[in-house]
Design a protein around this nucleic acid. Sequence first.
DNA 1: GATGAATGAGCCTTCATTCAT
DNA 2: GATGAATGAAGGCTCATTCAT
Lengths: 207, 207, 207, 207
Amino acid sequence: MRADARANREALLAAARQLYAARGTSAPFSQIAAEAGVGIGTLYRHFPTPDDLIVGLLTDVLEQVTAICRRHRERLSGADAAAAWRDVVDDLVALELGPLVPQLVADRALADLPSDLLDLRAEGLGEIERLLDLAKRAGLVRPDVTTLFFQAGLAAFSRPLPALLGDAAPGLRAWLVEVYLAGLRPTADDGAAVSLSSPAARRSPRR
Amino acid sequence: MRADARANREALLAAARQLYAARGTSAPFSQIAAEAGVGIGTLYRHFPTPDDLIVGLLTDVLEQVTAICRRHRERLSGADAAAAWRDVVDDLVALELGPLVPQLVADRALADLPSDLLDLRAEGLGEIERLLDLAKRAGLVRPDVTTLFFQAGLAAFSRPLPALLGDAAPGLRAWLVEVYLAGLRPTADDGAAVSLSSPAARRSPRR
Amino acid sequence: MRADARANREALLAAARQLYAARGTSAPFSQIAAEAGVGIGTLYRHFPTPDDLIVGLLTDVLEQVTAICRRHRERLSGADAAAAWRDVVDDLVALELGPLVPQLVADRALADLPSDLLDLRAEGLGEIERLLDLAKRAGLVRPDVTTLFFQAGLAAFSRPLPALLGDAAPGLRAWLVEVYLAGLRPTADDGAAVSLSSPAARRSPRR
Amino acid sequence: MRADARANREALLAAARQLYAARGTSAPFSQIAAEAGVGIGTLYRHFPTPDDLIVGLLTDVLEQVTAICRRHRERLSGADAAAAWRDVVDDLVALELGPLVPQLVADRALADLPSDLLDLRAEGLGEIERLLDLAKRAGLVRPDVTTLFFQAGLAAFSRPLPALLGDAAPGLRAWLVEVYLAGLRPTADDGAAVSLSSPAARRSPRR
DNA sequence: GATGAATGAGCCTTCATTCAT
DNA sequence: GATGAATGAAGGCTCATTCAT
């Protein structure tokens, strides 16, 4: 029955991920269990607390991040770097990092996550950093873009848009990715205009 | 008594807005009423359904959008267009449109909103369109950027990122806005590279 | 509706007390509410936490303890002291202190109870002490019996006996009261035999 | 394998007894199994229903009751009858019969118990009766005390008092046992005063 | 109009019990 | 025989909504 248990666990993770991605908001546990085709008790056996479920989901996603990065790394050094770069970003966005990572961790601090997960996160960020370095070397990204900001940006707009916006704008996400990539690119005037080197100099935004 | 009722209504809207913005998640109605200093029954008198409360909040926000746009329009035609453009966007972002609106409207379709509100929305979008035209004329925005996409992008980038990302990256929102503005700017090669004229030709982003 | 609310509160306390006394074990909240003829939400409004319900029950009981003691005090100084003494104890036992006080407070320390309740407890113990003094003066109780032990003894056997014992022995409780009163009485040999002055000298009981 | 099974059974009974005694409240079955170091399925194999577990526990206890009585019987006929009597009672109290049994049997009637167990019970009561007779003959117990009442009183007085009382009164149980024994002793006026020969003549204890 | 008490539907969680391995 | 995964009924609790005062 070990095999069955594993299958159930996978089904639960898949169901949770789908529901979280679709709804953005925390779905009832009973619904996750129903979607996975198991009883509510089984969900609790595999993930005794909501945190355990989150950790499970994040583990999956981070592993995929690493896999995606590694899959594309070689091409980024080649002649087709621009296309490769867009492909990586497309894949990362398709992961729906947005709904998962930020919404689920809510008020949780990094320190509260188990060290296993933090290791995975470090690994994923490391892979992204390598990719970003290659993209910079290929002239696709300004040198001052940090790994943390880059991935945070990815998460920021890979979140689902509420129907009010999304319905009215098919193709919106693809457009957002394009704009994001364009915004990261070095500018003709050497990138000085969009540098954040002196953000304090900007007008303080109205509260 | 009319004055009292109006004051209560304002207090309720303010309380709701603050709670939504602060907690990010939908607060109990009883708490909104308590925060406003009125009984729960009074909340229901002013906003019989949750939708009524949302409509009230959206109305407030849309009126502010229109006001902001009008306040800055003149400067956008002047010599300091670039600074003016950034100021408008900063003000719009400061509205917390991102954090507020999407959470409230959830899965609601445009068609479900009352015509009053749709009128206000049309007015706000009209003002944004005028602004956008001025920005295009000043060479700050590519000509193919539509009003709908622009404001949707604004909302997407200005939504709050929860703790895991937000804490780790102070200044993230300002950076995202900068990247967004940079991405909207015409490119050296005339913007052709980032055109969405043939999005279907792109690689499928899934998996 | 204040009157209704008060009536509901009383009904809830009565239902809880009856159920606790009958079952000895913590009854489902839903059952208490049903017994009181109100919705489960009403129970939670009046007693947000189980502790609040306990405090309410204890308050009631302690007030009755004080009332009983005061009612009988005069007679205890009269010629009919022996009969009066038995009546007080009967009344106190009839309160079913047993099921309420010890079972409900479970792992709670005295310090956790609100000061209002502690005051009531002190008042009740004070009344019992006065009664006990009169009983001692009337030669009905040995001088070395402390108030605390006396009331603890009352609680000890006013608890409901499980069916296994109770069914098989009608009249058991009345008999226990008699034995308790007899055990408290000064003995012919001056009470030395039952004194606890040197309990350490007794054989250590097997674990 | 028979030896293993027997060991498991013993471990389960020990774990159940310890948990009941320690926590006072019924512990989850899964915890009993865990404490015994076996799977939950094993618990169910040995004790298919909760009743079977109770019967197992009661069997153990009753066997010990019989053993204790037999161990002390001789001394009760000797010169040191008073000390022997107290020792027996101490040993019986130390069995934690009070804390353990009543909680387990709850609302079960005698008739529901299996005949094996009823036989054991009869045997235990028989032993107690013999002891009681010796105590009466030694002038330690009034002649009208019945075996049933005696053992029920023992259980009633030796049940544990929760924190509120227990903490405040160390030595309470020993004191209660002393008072009980004193109350059982013949009185100077021949015991007539505490006879229950006409209990119906007493004032009704309710309200 | 304002108030807050009452209600019950629905989600969360535990745990006794069954059963496939 | 032993194991522990799966199940779902049951109880705890919250909160949107109604309604009597």
